[in-house]
Design a protein around this nucleic acid. Structure first.
Lengths: 119, 119
DNA sequence: AATACTACTATACAAAAGTATAGTTAAATA
DNA sequence: TATTTAACTATACTTTTGTATAGTAGTATT
């Protein structure tokens, strides 16, 4: 019996595209990632500053999310060799360029609101 | 006592930008939205077809997510006036244009992999 | 010496998201 | 008439995500 393929062969590049999209979604998913990235973009560097910049975030969540972002290569945690130690967070190159994704989300989101709510 | 503002005034457009990004993230968030959208892009229209196209999705989740996507204006549910009724799902205009967001995610995701894993 | 600040961690809990499994309704087919 | 198919829904459960609250270690300040 012959196997009839009703779909085209999936190329390797398509597979890595799916991975790439999932990577991006993971970086941005959850309640706090975007506010944290925004706060870092705004220039906040220290734990306390970020925390007081974001309404209602608990230190537990901030700590967890910063670790996530660090592991994902979006944020750098810099420990200054001072007394007392000063710890600063900043965006990596990848963390900075994610604006492009955010821009396309803004564009689509606004157009979508027009099409959906505006109609 | 004078209030010293240490941050620039936030403009209304920035607020709606945040809303727009959140709209976009909501549309794409969760385990199944992307596979479903991909399946619809691929041309699947019927519940069973989408279900058998996506590994391990339960009818409960497919049903829930399709409703979500319909409510969010990404998917249309078309009930054909036949016997038995034929139900077809398809992407709205917004649903189709979300490719632009996905493209920028692919681009960022691939570059990010290069920068992070490749280094 | 007592208090306060920074940068967190620990524990317990609640809510949201997802899974497993079975059942329903209406029509079509054998 | 019995079975099958489509398009779901219902119930119970597990996992993940997020919240609430308190506590800690090291230093600095009063």
């Amino acid at each position: 019996m012959e196997v009839v393929r009703t779909y085209p062969k999936v190329k390797k590049c398509q597979v890595s595209y799916v991975l790439a999209v999932n990577d991006t979604l993971n970086v941005l998913s959850g309640k706090w990632k975007l506010p944290i990235i925004a706060s870092l973009f705004y220039g906040n560097k220290r734990f306390k500053d970020i925390q007081s910049n974001i309404d209602n975030i608990t230190p537990r969540m901030l700590s967890k999310e910063l670790k996530d972002l660090e592991m994902n290569g979006i944020v750098l945690r810099i420990v200054h060799d001072t007394r007392p130690v000063l710890i600063e967070y900043e965006l990596t190159e990848s963390g900075k360029t994610i604006t492009k994704v955010l821009d396309s989300m803004v564009e689509w989101g606004l157009k979508h609101r027009e099409l959906t709510i505006g109609s």
